[in-house]
Write a protein that binds this DNA or RNA. Sequence first.
DNA 1: GCACAAATTGCAGACTATGCAAAGGACAAT
DNA 2: ATTGTCCTTTGCATAGTCTGCAATTTGTGC
Lengths: 193, 193
Amino acid sequence: MTLSLRERRRLQTARDIQRATLKLALAEGLDAITTDAIAAAAGVSTRTFFNYYPNKEAAAIGTPPGFRDEDKAALRAGRNALAVDLKQFLDRHMAALAEDETILRMVGKVVHANSKASGLLDRVVLGERDELAECLRPRVNDDQVAMALAANATACTARAIHLWENEENVSLAEALDRVWAGQIAAARLLANP
Amino acid sequence: MTLSLRERRRLQTARDIQRATLKLALAEGLDAITTDAIAAAAGVSTRTFFNYYPNKEAAAIGTPPGFRDEDKAALRAGRNALAVDLKQFLDRHMAALAEDETILRMVGKVVHANSKASGLLDRVVLGERDELAECLRPRVNDDQVAMALAANATACTARAIHLWENEENVSLAEALDRVWAGQIAAARLLANP
DNA sequence: GCACAAATTGCAGACTATGCAAAGGACAAT
DNA sequence: ATTGTCCTTTGCATAGTCTGCAATTTGTGC
């Protein structure tokens, strides 16, 4: 568990570069700043920048927290109604995201203004959706249903973050509650003819 | 309605460039080919390439068909169950996409292998989601519900295309039927505790 | 302390993308 | 048909992105 000096430094440099990227990008826009400027602000050479991230956009996104194994296991083994277990799973993930609210807010602002960054982040979310679908499969025994549930759930997280970004005085947890309530209401409309 | 010579030529050149991009990208990968090569294959100068598209990825995507105004109006004014009207709306849009199956298949292959292109396409889909939500708002009188429905619907279209790409002998319409059935089943699970 | 692996850096070079200005083709009005 | 205008194409120059290579420095395990 305890990281070596090398590993700690690597993590630190990665974070330094991300912070430098976000700081500059918020001030001038990600498209307007150069990798040279980011590297200089992070205190490394340009070549080292590309040693950590393949491009500006990836540097801005960094490495967002994924699903935790324990949460996935809990969802797989859950015995409550699916909607309840799924909501709890999303709550836990949202709590993990809330640990770095500052970064989350900056990443959001930068990403919304840059479609290449959106694409990278979308890949991450797509991977999470598939991970989630994998957890749901044993509980619904139908691939399409598992995929639909997983897609609906990850989309709720995304919309919740969006709501939190645009509405004052709404915590991430509250935003997720509101979005989830909308999803459940929508599900009722789709389910009952 | 009848386009001038200038406009027709412009459309034609845009299509030529997209076709050249897709053809080369399918053979060698979008990342491996240069804008010079694309321009040469399309019979224009490199500078003209950038006159039509801001980058390779946009050239590969081209201008996919959006929702038709008549379909949107029909959805807004529909009197059947929401699930029925919504499905019909998606069917019509899918039919529009099916008019250019060849392009759709090529775009899919190329986009899946390139995250910048994914980002661009994702922006298009996000815009469509908002357009759709706008149509649903008068029928559900709750923003979150409209957004959830619209997001679920556009995600179904995306998953249907994905299914059609990966499964032999499944038409786009059939793929949408299968995905939609999964979405409805998922909705039932979420709606009934 | 020593040998090995990882990290940093500079440099060269291919590729992307934009501004500018010149030249030729389409178009509307006469 | 002619003329003036606008649009399109194109080449050139230039700033910026990203990779491969090789030299140097810096941790790690023995």
